[in-house]
Design a protein around this nucleic acid. Structure first.
Length: 417
DNA sequence: ATGTAC
């Protein structure tokens, strides 16, 4: 059965909803992950499931999966890191002074954002309007407010439910990266494959791009704890979706503040040094068209890739990220992988790599980039060796026509503070 | 992934 799952083109597995596995040559997939995907396809209301080439085992449910349901929504298929995603902003800056940049990055990420702003107003702005909301909050740095004013409003359903349940202190985490695979990064455009699309983003070879990969931090965990592991229907489902909308907007605001901090350290906050950018959420559930009807599309570690939509597949500090252009292909449920995907569990990576590398080696990547991280365990847990190779993942997405390549970004400095 | 407890 595992062998059948790993065939290419995609295989369909009996029992439960049809599953499409987006795999290809040299894409490693752990058997446990495909078993988890098969289990997901048997959940209440499930009509389709897709495994992306970064599929790997999660807690109960796999990461790198897209699950379509009718009527029922499963909060567990979004996970505790609800609203997590990636944000990029393109600059015209080409040069940095490494030591000065390190100092500036530390200063940015170690400073408190909220000192001068009213906490309740800050939380409400992020929950209600995401990054755009920060433009209206008094007391925030001018550069951040100007960056926020450039943001379009979110087109998803408006937040509802009870934000009062969650607003105790979460504004404190706005602008923080978090742990695990989250990072803030300055990277360089080193390979442009689609010049027209790249030009639309203002993206030119050698230019520096800031990348923020983070989520709603403790807020998503609180949401998951409140709603629990059961399927939701009717008004309960709608209340959850309203609160998820708030958490997703909060996560978007968080990534914008992280991007602001990177741009600030880089000295790229002026109008003439800023180009385009975009933000994608890869842990989410939303209503989308499917087979002529509407379905709830759950994404857990899968980035939306609608026809003509920009998206990003995140590399590691030892591998490039790829900006891609979606096709909206039904086979992938309008999605792509969110990254290379883990090859080793965190505990396994720590145990194996501690003996393989010195600590001075893990703070530097094979691509010449630097890592700013004070957590020794995290340096090993998130080492590039703990991840699959990115190139076969991108090649599989292209071969299955889920997206096309726009440009590759090579990490220069990765911040995990 | 996270905040907190062990």
């Amino acid at each position: 059965m595992t062998r059948a799952l790993l065939t290419n083109p995609p295989a369909t597995v009996a029992a439960g909803a049809p599953i499409t596995l987006i795999s290809g040559p040299d894409v490693w997939m752990e058997g446990d992950a495909t078993l988890q995907l098969a289990a997901v396809a048997r959940l209440a209301g499930c009509v389709r499931a897709a495994g992306m080439p970064d599929l790997h085992p999660g807690r109960g449910y796999p990461i790198g999966a897209v699950v379509a349901t009718r009527d029922v929504v499963h909060p567990q298929l979004v996970g505790g890191d609800a609203g997590c995603g990636a944000r990029i902003i393109v600059t015209t800056v080409e040069r940095t002074t490494p030591d000065q940049l390190d100092r500036r990055l530390r200063a940015q990420f170690e400073a408190a954002l909220v000192d001068a702003a009213d906490p309740a107003a800050l939380f409400a702005a992020a929950w209600q309007r995401g990054g755009r909301g920060l433009a209206e909050v008094d007391g925030l740095p001018d550069g951040l407010r100007q960056l926020a004013a450039r943001e379009p409003d979110d087109d998803r359903l408006p937040p509802s439910g009870d934000p009062g349940r969650y607003q105790a202190g979460f504004e404190q985490v706005l602008g923080t990266v978090g742990g695990g695979n989250h990072f803030a990064e300055i990277s360089r455009v080193d390979d442009v494959r689609d010049t027209a699309t790249a030009a639309g983003l203002g993206l030119a070879r050698h230019a520096l791009v800031v990348v923020a990969h983070s989520g709603s931090r403790g807020l998503g965990t609180a949401l998951g704890a409140h709603w629990g592991p059961r399927p939701l229907r009717g008004t309960e489902r709608d209340d959850y979706l309203g609160e998820l909308a708030g958490a997703c907007r909060f996560a978007h605001a968080n990534r914008l503040v992280v991007a602001y901090r990177l741009l600030s350290a880089l000295g790229a906050l002026r109008d003439h040094t800023l180009r385009g950018g975009f933000d994608v959420t890869h842990n989410d559930v939303r209503a989308e068209r499917l087979d002529g009807g509407e379905a709830w599309i759950h994404r857990k570690g899968a980035a939306p890739a609608p026809a003509g939509g920009l998206t990003i597949v995140l590399g590691s500090r030892g591998a490039s990220s790829w900006i891609m252009l979606g096709t909206g292909a039904a086979a992938g449920l309008g999605s792509v992988a969110h990254g290379a995907g883990r090859k080793m569990k965190r505990s396994e990576a720590l145990a194996k790599l501690k003996d393989r590398y010195r600590r001075s080696e893990v703070a530097r990547s094979t691509l010449g980039g630097r890592v700013i991280c004070d957590d020794k365990a995290l340096l090993f847990e998130e080492h590039p060796d703990a991840y699959k190779a990115i190139e076969p993942v991108i090649a599989a997405l292209v071969a299955h026509r889920l997206a096309t390549r726009v440009a590759a970004l090579t990490p220069i400095v990765t911040v995990k503070l």
